[in-house]
Design a protein around this nucleic acid. Structure first.
Lengths: 334, 334
DNA sequence: TTGTATGCGTTATCAT
DNA sequence: ATGATAACGCATACAA
């Protein structure tokens, strides 16, 4: 059952049937109803592949994640999907696990499926050339959770440098001078590199020397946070505070501190970043920095929609505010 | 640039070009290389929509989630995607938030895109008719995280009844006789209903009367767990143990217990279910029941692949083992 | 508002 | 192993 057959039954042309579905306002109401009725009676299913082929672009958007779809990204993803659903756009999703060959394969899929746009959670070096390839094919892209000042990419995110800077300065304001850092794989992702830089700049601004021996980089996970924190605790001249630039690392670190028989924040202050949903339920509740996860997803989707309607505009760039969330994991230090 | 143009340049027919891409073994090696070279030089991009149209099925699989893609499902999802990527199949994903109209719209999208199969995380009443629609269109589906004994659906999951039963019996074995239950929206999802039944059956088997006043149903989330636990703590004749049939609820409950100035497991024992990744990092670490999250995703994807190669076989049904994970949140009761 | 006619780029059938 | 040709089902330019 296809549009031609419906047209035959309805005694109209296939063009009219097509219009009834795609541009219903162009078809006389009674006729439209008749067509819908026949379609329903015959269990007609619209063939999106055929439409995609003809229109040379599919009604889909590709979303690429580097990491786990965890406590933070899942909110962003849900907002993306909900927003696109309003325009009946499907979401093709892929996670790369930082593997360049997986990333290539997924982006190649997006290209071959003629996605109407792509959303990339974060920026890697490999990405840059691939994104250029998309824009050269006329496919718009949006980077999320990251800002790229001075670039001509579309993006919507938070200022990760500033978020880490704020968190670090908060600790400094509490009197801490020796502040450890637990950080993700900053070599791989610009977002994480920016957080690292935010930490360093806050220290430098406050005339605190950076001590690489209390900076630990690892993958993002509870276990990694715990292990890294154990190393930090063994360090000579132990830090009085630790900034974990991801709540996953922070919650892992919290466990390590308890295992060592110490208390947060009495013996050591702990600051997170991201405001993962579990952060408020840790013991003690984790002070952290919150980015507008849903908002980011929503805006990213809207950017794609806007570009679709009106291509060729200047890049759309949103730097959203992140908020310091003070809970109970940090204490003054004298 | 399309296959025809490549064919022209290579001095072969478009059919040969198509074969070079889809069934390379049917093309002479040297010729194949020549075609690939020309394709690369001209930045050719394979058009999946055209192929989908012609083949009457797309190289995509639809995945439907009811709830957040959180601590547990994200593992399953990642395994699905990784497995399908090996066959270069794209994943279209949607979450319904239990809204029937969203569910319908997403499934309609899957239908129109002619997905090669669908994976459904759990079973709702609405689902049943929709899945029949898919199978009537020749589209295979797999239910995950749930088993449907006696049905002719493909499924791969754990026995949720048994998981909850085990958890409850563990508590009973510890000497608890008054055991509260924190449960998700069991009216909406069979999986949750099964957990509820597992709890009840464990009690009944051990001749413990079921007291509805210490059974609280809510949505699945930290906050809901906390609120529900606060209600339980106020109950006359407070339970000595609580089984939270989701680790989200359990972690929320943990917070409520601490807020009330009590200790787990000294004052009250707390049992979770799911083994969300944060469970081991709670304080105290949460005892729970673990299902093989990645395995489920992997098998679900493979089922679809197998059906694709050989349709019309009897339903494939996997009930995987779940494991009781004993950590430190439950104590004996006398 | 509706119809006519054509083509999007691939795959598949049949032939060579 | 390769070629010729005909669909797949829809959207759209143009005509009426």
């Amino acid at each position: 059952m296809n549009m031609n057959e419906i047209a035959k039954i309805a005694g109209v042309s296939n063009a009219t049937v097509s219009r009834a579905f795609r541009t219903p306002e162009k078809v006389r109401p009674e006729l439209k109803e008749k067509i819908f009725k026949i379609a329903a009676e015959n269990h007609y299913v619209y063939n999106a592949s055929a439409a995609d082929l003809k229109r040379r672009v599919s009604n889909t958007v590709g979303v690429l994640f580097q990491q786990r779809i965890g406590a933070v990204f899942s909110k962003t993803f849900m907002a993306i999907q909900e927003t696109l659903l309003e325009k009946n756009i499907s979401v093709i999703i892929g996670h790369t696990q930082f593997k360049p060959e997986v990333e290539s394969q997924l982006l190649q899929q997006f290209l071959e499926r003629q996605v109407a746009g792509i959303i990339l959670s974060g920026f890697t070096k490999e990405n840059k050339t691939l994104i250029k390839k998309f824009s050269s094919q006329g496919i718009p892209s949006v980077i999320i959770w990251e800002i790229l000042k001075g670039s001509d990419f579309n993006y919507v995110g938070i200022d990760n440098h500033n978020a880490a800077f704020k968190a670090t300065e908060y600790l400094i304001g509490l009197g801490h001078r020796r502040i450890g850092l637990l950080i993700g794989p900053y070599q791989k992702m610009e977002r994480i590199q920016n957080r690292y830089d935010g930490y360093k700049d806050a220290l430098t601004k406050n005339k605190i020397e950076i001590d690489q021996s209390i900076v630990i980089s690892s993958e993002l996970g509870f276990l990694q946070g715990k292990e890294a924190m154990h190393r930090l605790l063994k360090a000579a001249d132990r830090p009085s505070a630790v900034f974990a630039a991801s709540d996953y690392l922070a919650m892992g670190a919290l466990k390590a501190i308890k295992e060592a028989g110490m208390k947060v924040p009495k013996d050591i202050s702990l600051m997170g970043l991201d405001d993962a949903e579990f952060a408020a339920y840790c013991d003690p509740p984790l002070s952290t920095v919150r980015g507008p996860a849903r908002e980011i997803g929503k805006i990213a989707a809207k950017i794609l929609l806007e570009i679709k309607d009106e291509p060729g505009l200047p890049p759309k760039q949103y730097c959203l505010d992140s908020d310091l969330i003070i809970r109970d994991s940090c204490a003054p230090h004298f």
